[in-house]
């Protein structure tokens, strides 16, 4: 992603303290599909974070954390749900210009709960 001019590079220095309290994490069998956002060198960090806030209704802190995960790890699971739900999210993300894919939630290393739940 392209760093936000106004924030400068020290945006990376923000830590994740106090941002990891998610009390309503669903368990794996209930969440068969993930919405994945992929990093690209074009989308602004501020824009990606804004989309997470405005579309999913996530807090600023959570949106920032997910955006940084996309930026640093190359991808992040930002929502999960039924196939139909995540596909609907993917259509919206493509509308915003974010590079989104859907995938079956595997029993791999990535825990979908980290990405939180979607609105509605």
């Amino acid at each position: 992603m392209t760093p936000s001019v106004a924030y400068g590079t020290d945006i990376d220095q923000r830590t994740d303290t106090a941002q990891q309290t998610s009390t309503d994490v669903l368990t794996a069998p209930d969440i068969p599909w993930n919405l994945v956002i992929w990093n690209d060198p074009v989308n602004l960090m501020s824009y990606v974070s804004y989309v997470f806030q405005s579309y999913f209704g996530y807090s600023e802190a959570k949106s920032h954390k997910l955006m940084m995960e996309v930026h640093k790890k190359g991808r992040s699971i930002v929502a999960h749900g039924s196939k139909e739900q995540v596909e609907q999210h993917a259509v919206a993300m493509h509308g915003f210009g974010l590079w989104a894919t859907v995938e079956k939630a595997a029993s791999g290393n990535e825990t979908p709960g980290k990405g939180g739940r979607q609105r509605g």
Binding site: V36, D40, E87, A90, H94, G97, W99, A100, T101, V102, E103
Partner: peptide, 9 residues
């Protein structure tokens, strides 16, 4: 393709 990407990898 970047504007209209594939939805599955």
């Amino acid at each position: 393709l970047r504007l209209l990407p594939n939805v599955m990898k």
